[in-house]
Each structure stands twice: as structure tokens, then as C-alpha cells.
Design a binder for these strands. Structure first.
Lengths: 239, 239
DNA sequence: GACTTCACAATTGTTAACAATCTTTGTCAA
DNA sequence: TTGACAAAGATTGTTAACAATTGTGAAGTC
């Protein structure tokens, strides 16, 4: 794992015309989605340069794009760090998701497009396969991407974009505040949601989704760890 | 008009740390919102450089940020152009707005926060004042920004961001497809919506908003002008 | 021993020159 | 007159050197 191409992700809205830039952005995005890159990890220009074999300009542009997507935090004269959402932001993320996803799912259940439902079914198969194989990073990423595909099923570029940002941020939040027990999403909730959509039951789909989001949220310890990292990141580096 | 500071807009999410960069981004954003910058207008680096008295680096970064917000279209080796949404994108924008804004307004009507309602009231006063004075560009901008303030009233950073993008894009769309008659928004619909919110009538607020959005959409000639500009822009330039 | 100060190293920010690409203009031939 | 072609001009993309800032560690002082 990790060796497969990044092309899988390039159905996303990506503004950079240069392929190298896209690669950098997508790789970091993917690492964040899989929680391999922890919040507040420093992304120094030099290391990215020789990781990707690119000049500084490309790296800087990629970092600027990542910062505009809220994935990275640019600090003047100090460098780029993986974003580290606080409790207030976490609240905003979940509220935004609770605002957008329910009507989205309702709409999907009212006008289900067979082609899109197929894609969702395929995705759930992937999820289950990853679970069977116990591939942790895959499970985490696919779990998040289910919601993204939900948005993509609506066939709306803007909704997809916003959802991508919200899902990415959720990944950071779960990484920060998630208790180790509920590390991964509950297994069958996605299946149930898709089922309700396929059966054209908007109300049920909506309710399942809301409880799913609440379930994720309830697995977080928002009180502990007020503002961790930075120190922690340094500690990890000193090993 | 036009001489007032740009600071008014800086409550927005803006990722650039440098003040010059913010200024460029906000000025172009504002010009688009006021429909002074038409779709497909070329933004050459040189002209921006001496307009703002900045080096090329700043301009290029600003353009990259604008492109990440969908305001500007970066074409490799050809330059930056004000985005020119097509019919398909227009459809997406309105669908996204119809997805997000109704639940948003409903929520505002259920939990109205007095401070935020005050801000909305103030905004409507500004709108009416601009209408009285017949300040066209102000009317256009404030009209769009009402919806943005609606989102901001929810106190959610992400919702505000998405709405900002949608509203900006709507401005481009109306500029492209809007028939000259309905150039500006209908006068009192915003007032009515706010009224419904203040009276804590979620259903009514939602309905008013939906019909408001449909009203805007119905004022567009989506069939005419399949893909204008570029040529048109060149024609205008040859005067 | 703890604290400040200073200098050095490392990292990021900026600039300007150079390279590559596209656009325009002018010329020539059909 | 129209079209293709080529050279000049203008614009964007890239690179590398330089400047500025921050972080680090050693020396010195209390």
C-alpha cells in the first residue's frame, strides 16, 4: 500500500495545471486523509523539494494551494505546518456537515442515478475489502471518502469541493481528538445509508446519516488535549 | 464610491498573510462582485504589478489564490483570466445554493442570534440606501453580500467560505447570462426573508429564500450566448 | 545552576536575470 | 485579397543568487 498511483484522486477539483504540483498536493492530501501526517507536522521546503525532486517554486506553489484548502498552515518566515484544528473549528466542521449532508442524502434518495449508485456500491465493496484485510490506513481513507463520493454522486462540482474540504478536516480532527477505541468508523453505517438511498427512502437515509455523523462526533474527546502538538511533534522528531 | 478602504471585506477568510496580497485578492474579488470585471477579462501580470506597485511574485501568488477560489482561470503560458462559467457550472452553482441556503435560513430562524440579526438589519439598511441613491455597483455588490452575511450569521467559517465562493460565482453568472432588465435583484425580497427569520418562522423563511433564488435564476437567459467573451473582450479592447 | 547575549547555521522570502512560450506583425506567394 | 510562413515583440515560466528572518548553541554573567 502507498505504492499505488495517485491518479485515483485526480477526479477531484485541482487547480494546478502542472502535474508535479498536483502530485505534491494530492500526496499530502492523501497522507492527511490516511492520518499518516499528523497535525502540526512541519513541511519544510527543502525536504519536499528532494522528496519530489522539484524546485522550490513548485513546492511553494503547492503549499500555497494546500493552505488555501485549509490543509496546511503557512506561517510567515517560519514555514508550513499541517493544519491543527481546535475545538471551535471542529464544532464548525461538524455543524457544516450536519447542514449540508442531510439535504444532500435526501436529494440522492429522491433522484437516485443508477450510475452514481453503482459507484457508491463499488466504494463500499472496497471499504469492506479493506476491513477484511485489516488495512488500517486504507480503511481510514476510504471511510472518509465515502462521504466525498456521496457528494460526487450529486454531480455538483461545488458540493464536491466543499465536502472534500470538510472531510479532510474531519480526518485531522479525528486524528487529534479521537479516542483510540473508535479509531475507525463503525462498519455497516455506510452500507445502511446507501441502502436507504437505493430504496428511495429519503427520510430514513437522512436520519441514518445524521446519526452516523453524531456517532463520529461522539467518539471524540473534545475536552482533553486543548492544544497539543508542536511540542509533541518536536518530541517525535527527537527520537 | 470605490475609494473606500477594502478593510470592509477582510472579515472574510483570506489565507494570505501578506497585506499586499490580500489587497490584490480583495480588490479583484470586489470588482467581480460589482461586475466591473467581466468574465474572461485578462489580468496580465505586468498591469497588476504597476496597478498595485508590487513585484511579480506577489501578483502571481494572488492570482494563484484567486484561481483556487474559482474567481480566476489560470492558463498555462497564456495568463490569468476572470473566470467564465458556462451553463453547466451555472446550474451547479444554483443547485448548490438551493441545497445549502434553505437549511441555513431555516436554522437561523430557529435559533436567531440577536447580534447577528442586527448585522443583517444593518446590511439591509445599506442596501436600501444604495437603492435610493441609485448607486448601481453598490446595489449589485450588497445584493450578493446579503446572502454572504446570511451565512456569516450562522457563525460557521466553512459555510461562510463556501457561500462566498457561490455568491461570487453567481455574480459572474448574472453578468454573463442576466438579461438587462433584471440587472439588479428585486428590492424587498431580502427584507421579507430577514423578516421571516426575525419572526422565527423557519418554513416561511425557507420558502421565501427558495423563491428568491428561483427568481434570480429565472431572470437568466441560459440559452443565449453559449460561450461569449474572449472574442468579445478582444473586440472591446480594440476600441 | 539559571539566565541573558551574541554569533552562526538553517530556513524562508525576494529579486532579477534568463528561458520558454505565445501573440502579433509583416512579408511573400498563390 | 487571402492564406501561410517567419521574425520580432510581449508575456509567462523558471532558476539561482541574494536578503531577511528565525532557531540554535556556546560563551559569558549574575
Amino acid at each position: 500500500m502507498g505504492s499505488e498511483t495517485v491518479a485515483t484522486f485526480q477526479n477531484q477539483t485541482d487547480f494546478s495545471s502542472d502535474p508535479d504540483e498536483r502530485l505534491i498536493v494530492e500526496r499530502i492530501y492523501k497522507a492527511v486523509m490516511e492520518r499518516r501526517l499528523a497535525p502540526n507536522t512541519k513541511l519544510s521546503e527543502a525536504s519536499l523539494c528532494d522528496t519530489f525532486g522539484v524546485g522550490r517554486m513548485r513546492v511553494r506553489r503547492a503549499l500555497l494551494l494546500l493552505s488555501s484548502q485549509g490543509i496546511v498552515n503557512l506561517q510567515s518566515n517560519r514555514g508550513a505546518y499541517i493544519a491543527c484544528p481546535d475545538q471551535s473549528e471542529a464544532k464548525d466542521v461538524f455543524n457544516a456537515r450536519l447542514l449540508i449532508e442531510p439535504p444532500l442524502v435526501r436529494q440522492l434518495a429522491v433522484y437516485p442515478d443508477s450510475r452514481n449508485l453503482e459507484l457508491l456500491t463499488d466504494h463500499i465493496l472496497l471499504e469492506n475489502a479493506a476491513r477484511e484485510m485489516n488495512e488500517r490506513t486504507e480503511i481510514i481513507r476510504l471511510s472518509g471518502e465515502f462521504h466525498l463520493k456521496l457528494a460526487q454522486a450529486a454531480g455538483n462540482k461545488f458540493v464536491s469541493r466543499m465536502m472534500r474540504e470538510l472531510v479532510t478536516r474531519t480526518s485531522l480532527i479525528v486524528g487529534l481528538f479521537g479516542s483510540s477505541r473508535h479509531a475507525t468508523c463503525p462498519e455497516d453505517e455506510h452500507t445502511k445509508i446507501l441502502d436507504a438511498i437505493q430504496s428511495r427512502e429519503p427520510k430514513r437515509a437522512e436520519k441514518l446519516l445524521i446519526s452516523h455523523l453524531n456517532h463520529i462526533q461522539s467518539g471524540l474527546d473534545m475536552d482533553t488535549r486543548p492544544q497539543p502538538q508542536d511540542d509533541l511533534a518536536i518530541i517525535l522528531r527527537s527520537d
